[in-house]
Computed example of a mutant assay.
Amino acid sequence: MSKYSDLSFASERSRRRFLQTGALLIAGAGTAQAQTQGEEPMLRIGLMTDLHYADKKPAGSRYYRETLAKIAEASGQLAKARLDFLVELGDFIDAADAVDVELRYLKTIAKPFAEICHERHHVLGNHCVDTLTKEEFLGTVEQEKSYYSFDRGGYHFVVLDACFRSDGKPYGRNNSKWTDANIPPDELEWLADDLKQSNKSTIVFAHQRLDYEGNHAVNNSPAVRKIFEESGNVTTVFQGHSHANDYRQVNGVHYCTLRAMIEDSGLANSGFAILEIDTRGGLKIEGFQKQVSYQWT
C-alpha cells in the first residue's frame, strides 16, 4: 500500500466525494502534520470486531477464552477516551452446539463489553446467529433491530445486517453457510430510502465485506455499493469478518477492514480502535495492538 491512496474518478460526483474524503495517511506517514492536530474531536467512537468469545479450547489461530483478557485490556484504553458510543462489527461470540451454551457465551462477554460505554451498537456476524436466532441474540444484548440508522454530531450512521441466505431466510439454528451472506431486497430498499432522507455525511458499519466479491464478501455487494455511490453521502465503511487489516477505496468510498481481536495468543495480538471525527469531517483511526492506524484529511 502506498503512503497516500487517492484515485481519479470519472464522474463529477466522485470528484466531489474525493474532495470530502481526501487522502489516506497510514500511521507513521506524516500524520503529525494532519489538519486535525490540536483540535478536540467532535466524536469519539470505539471499534472492535470478531471477538469470537467461547469457553472452549483454542482451534488454529483462535484463542477463544483469551478474548476476556483482551476485552479487559481494551476497556482500560477505551475508558480513557470518553467514547460517544461503541461498536462491535460482528462475530461477538463463537458457535456452540446448544442454545443454552451459546447464550452463556453471549452473556459472559456482553457484561464486560457493556461496562465500556453506555451507548453500544452490535453488528450481527455469522457466528452471532449460528445456533441462536437473531431475536435471541438481540434480546440478550438489548438491541431492538439488526439494521437501522442514527445521527450523532452532524453525522449519519448506518448499521447493516447481511446475515441472510440467498433465499432471503435469516441465519439461525444452524441453517446457514458463512459464504452465503446477502442483504435482502427489503433491506436494500430501506437503505436506499434511508440515505435519501439524510443529507449528512454517512458512515456504515457492517460485518461481511462490501468492498469486493469473494468468500468473505456479501454476495450482492455490488448492489450495496451502487446505493452508497448514488447517495453521494457515504464516505466510509467499517467492516470485519476476514480477520486481517485491509483498506480499499472504491469509487470514492473508504472501506476499512479491522483486525480480529480473536487471532493469536496474548494481549499483544489483540486489535481494537478509536475513531475520531473532527469538526471539519476528518477521520482518524487510532489502532491498538495489531490494529493499523489511519487518517483521512
Rank of each mutant, 00 (worst) to 15 (best):
H121L: 12
H121F: 15
H121D: 09
H122M: 04
V123Y: 01
L124D: 09
L124R: 08
L124M: 15
G125D: 08
N126R: 05
H127A: 07
H127N: 14
H127L: 06
H127V: 02
C128F: 08
V129R: 00
V129T: 14
V129P: 00
V129A: 09
T131Q: 12
T131A: 05
L132V: 13
K134R: 14
K134C: 13
E135W: 03
E135I: 07
F137I: 06
F137A: 01
F137Q: 03
F137V: 06
L138F: 11
L138G: 04
G139K: 09
T140L: 02
V141S: 01
E142D: 12
E142M: 06
Q143G: 05
Q143Y: 10
K145N: 11
K145L: 11
K145P: 00
S146Q: 04
Y148A: 06
Y148H: 11
S149E: 06
S149W: 00
D151G: 00
D151T: 02
R152N: 09
R152Y: 14
G153P: 01
G153T: 10
G153H: 03
G153Q: 04
G154Y: 05
G154W: 03
G154H: 02
Y155N: 08
H156C: 10
F157L: 10
F157Y: 15
F157C: 10
V158P: 08
V158T: 08
V159S: 07
A162F: 09
C163Q: 09
F164Y: 13
F164V: 03
F164P: 00
F164R: 00
R165M: 08
S166Y: 02
D167H: 10
D167N: 14
G168S: 05
K169D: 11
K169Q: 14
K169N: 10
P170N: 11
P170V: 15
Y171A: 08
G172I: 14
R173N: 15
N175E: 14
S176E: 12
S176D: 13
W178P: 00
T179H: 12
D180T: 09
A181D: 06
A181M: 12
A181K: 05
N182S: 11
N182K: 04
N182E: 09
I183A: 02
I183W: 07
P184G: 09
P185E: 08
P185N: 03
D186I: 03
E187M: 01
E187N: 07
L188P: 00
L188M: 11
L188H: 01
W190E: 09
D193I: 01
D194T: 11
L195S: 07
L195Q: 03
L195V: 08
Q197S: 14
S198K: 11
S198P: 02
S198M: 04
N199Y: 04
N199T: 13
K200W: 12
K200E: 12
S201F: 07
S201H: 12
